[in-house]
Design a protein around this nucleic acid. Sequence first.
DNA 1: TATGAATGAGGGTTCATTCAT
DNA 2: TATGAATGAACCCTCATTCAT
Lengths: 209, 209, 209, 209
Amino acid sequence: MAAHALPAQNRTKGRETAERVRKAALTLFANSGFAAVSMREISAAVGVQPGALYNHFPTKQDILKDLMLTHMAELLAAWEEAHRPEGVDPLEHFVCFHIRYHLDRPDEVFVAYMELRSLEPENFAAVETERRRYETILTDILAAGTTAGRYAVEDAKVATRAIIAMLTGIPTWYREGGSLSKDAVEDLYLTMVQKSVAPTPGHAPREAG
Amino acid sequence: MAAHALPAQNRTKGRETAERVRKAALTLFANSGFAAVSMREISAAVGVQPGALYNHFPTKQDILKDLMLTHMAELLAAWEEAHRPEGVDPLEHFVCFHIRYHLDRPDEVFVAYMELRSLEPENFAAVETERRRYETILTDILAAGTTAGRYAVEDAKVATRAIIAMLTGIPTWYREGGSLSKDAVEDLYLTMVQKSVAPTPGHAPREAG
Amino acid sequence: MAAHALPAQNRTKGRETAERVRKAALTLFANSGFAAVSMREISAAVGVQPGALYNHFPTKQDILKDLMLTHMAELLAAWEEAHRPEGVDPLEHFVCFHIRYHLDRPDEVFVAYMELRSLEPENFAAVETERRRYETILTDILAAGTTAGRYAVEDAKVATRAIIAMLTGIPTWYREGGSLSKDAVEDLYLTMVQKSVAPTPGHAPREAG
Amino acid sequence: MAAHALPAQNRTKGRETAERVRKAALTLFANSGFAAVSMREISAAVGVQPGALYNHFPTKQDILKDLMLTHMAELLAAWEEAHRPEGVDPLEHFVCFHIRYHLDRPDEVFVAYMELRSLEPENFAAVETERRRYETILTDILAAGTTAGRYAVEDAKVATRAIIAMLTGIPTWYREGGSLSKDAVEDLYLTMVQKSVAPTPGHAPREAG
DNA sequence: TATGAATGAGGGTTCATTCAT
DNA sequence: TATGAATGAACCCTCATTCAT
């Protein structure tokens, strides 16, 4: 009877379509790159006419922005919820979290790192802010651990970039079902990271206090 | 002068134009990505009409292929000529070579790593072959050094990927004139790489000889 | 209240919405032209979703037809009710009526004269019939006055078009609050029209009576 | 042999195509209105693919701007060359020039007056400047004639608008081959215009000097 | 070798309209 | 009566490429 009748079903349907657009776009962007994917391809993957996409996203750029901001938000939220078990080294905790999270979402990660340059300046700035927030987590771990004498890094920011680059490269070559299990990859990289920041024997600073 | 005069000059001029096309395309591809750059943009950057590009490259794809194969060939050639001074550790030699070479050619490196997916299968295969040749150099160094007990890597291929990813990420953030000199970057990364593959104290095999 | 309650209110609400659609469409058509205005723009101006427009008008063309036929009907009805005061010259009566009516409805007038070509043939014919009815009023005045010797026009139809064109052009440049009042404009144009059809001195027939 | 070999034929062909685009667009704009005409329609009328239009005009808007500025420029140039024969009243000279020029170019005139609102602000300003230059010609004639006592207009600017509106309306109804010849139309309108600005008998100012 | 006009396809986006709710 | 999702066609424009000159 109300003027806005029962739009609940419509809204639900719309949200589902938007989600299918996101998923289709993510796969296509990951495989071909943002610039090489057309709205027609996305709409075909969704099973809808091209114009229908514009009921859910105002522009193609907005789809990309949505994917990237959503990815960063979920990554940071997942980190908040990934509580470090007692006795586990913070760096180990971060590295394992990072590898697992990224190996489970190769498309999101690939798009997030490859398509930064496809973002318009405003959107780029928004994503960059989130990326820095994430990298700062590792920088803080390295800085605090160095102060405590557990690690020895000369420049925590540079070390952060080096480690993130190393870890983020994994999904570009890792293929599930290959000769290495995810756990094996995790072990190999964890070892390398830990050694790369380990205090040099003989140079270990004295315990603080 | 005969009717078909001055072929030599024309040839020279043509070669120069081709080189300007390469340079313009490289910059544009690095900044915007292959798919987002049009032949018109390239021709405008060269100062020529679009049709003229086709006197030098049969297709846009061929420009990319040319850039990537040239880059790989020059990289490998440069490595061949970079003789390791006596007394220098092979890994150090490689890392320093890699960082310096890549910091001097950020556009080539960026395109070579970002636009692999823009290559048609045949061209992709050709570039991949060269990339593997280059990575094998590091893999061999790591494997030999591990056998000799100078390094300790469990899986030389995985370690190669980790190290290459780490080093190749440098030009994405390094800016000349910033707070870090190239030498400083080189030192920081060299240290991390060396530690990451160093024999664990206590497990270090005895010196060979 | 029965299940189909409040039909009276709904009907009222619907009529109000239809009126708001008419007003919004009129303004938009006047400013941008029929072809350049989208149903979405109209619905946005009304504060309603595009689909809702179709509860009130079957097509965009019908909105235009409604506006134009309504305008012509109201113009003719207003003329019927505009009784000429005794002693006032019929041409003066018509000119003053026309100027005042049109200056008070600049958008209706503008649309009525500019968008004739946007009407589909059937609607065009309907509007044209009304326009001719209106123009015939002036033609008759001119013809009768010429017969009576008050005016001197060679071709009453051509004179009608000339005068209507002259008068109808006013709203395209007249701006309220400018240096001229509506009355001043009325005086200036009335004088010109009267002189343009006045009997030539020397040929002036004797006063009737 | 030169680098820019013999492009004369190309350039000529291009100029001809551009001219055919102008003519096709003019006819279509006059018949349907700028907003209702698509680039596809224009290209079809020219016998060319849509993309080819963009070799000659950067946007659809530029075609309109070109048509309108060209029209105004040619109108003003034609006026410059239309020397007034001795003994001919300046107003008569202007009215006859205007009617003939406009009856010979009904499409240009129609587009020039109907599509002012389709011009983007910058282009609108440019066209308006030219229109004012043209209207000023008539204003000056009326003002000078009034000073000299040949005409009697209270407000030369308003009279200009009234006369221009009257005359410019002609091509909207005049059809060649109808019952009236161009000369007849010219005579009828000239008479009305002259009378509309004629000094009222008894109010004629004394001869200057 | 370079021009500039042209092609044919396709780009992102908007259109009027429909329809289940 | 209003919503919001969808359609199918069309919009303006740009694309890589060709070709006569």
